[in-house]
């Protein structure tokens, strides 16, 4: 009985997949390449300009991140970033601007629930996993690196 139900569910899922329209993958990839590429070009431009103005490589990198994050948060506040993301998909998600958007958006939405339980608790609802598992994986890599050095 249980097995029959599972078979039925799988069959229905397969049928639904067949009749449900999806976004075109090549088009989405092209758009992501275009938008993501443009964001990176902008980043490179900021980097080069900062260096030309006398900043060293590290300082120029800081300026680059800072300005990109600022622009992303500004565009999120003006409700332009969601439109950009709808078009660019992963092209807007992967660069640092996507991360900034995922932090700014909950901050705006949950502001009405208060500074502590609203913004404070919920600001990382989307970015939280990236932060947590980013830290955990760098910790794991660090451990591997440490062991390898001892072994040498």
């Amino acid at each position: 009985m249980e097995n029959q139900k599972n078979v039925q569910a799988r069959e229905y899922e397969r049928y639904v997949k067949k009749v449900t329209p999806t976004h075109s993958l090549p088009v989405n990839m092209a758009r992501a390449f275009l938008v993501g590429g443009l964001i990176c070009v902008l980043g490179q431009y900021i980097l080069n300009t900062a260096q030309a103005m006398g900043a060293d490589k590290e300082e120029a990198g800081c300026w680059c991140s800072l300005i990109l994050i600022f622009l992303s948060v500004l565009l999120t506040g003006l409700n332009i970033y969601p439109k950009l993301a709808k078009f660019g998909g992963a092209g807007t998600l992967v660069p640092i601007t996507g991360f900034a958007n995922s932090v700014a958006a909950p901050a705006i939405e949950y502001q009405k629930e208060g500074q502590v339980f609203g913004i404070g608790c919920k600001i990382f609802t989307i970015a939280g996993p990236v932060i947590l598992y980013g830290v955990v994986s760098s910790w794991a890599l660090g451990l591997i690196y440490c062991v390898m050095r001892l072994w040498r």
Binding site: H23, T76, P82, A85, L93, S102, A105, P106, I108, I126
Partner: peptide, 8 residues
């Protein structure tokens, strides 16, 4: 998601 979050 929050309204201002960009997604497809």
């Amino acid at each position: 998601f929050p309204l201002a979050y960009g997604s497809q």
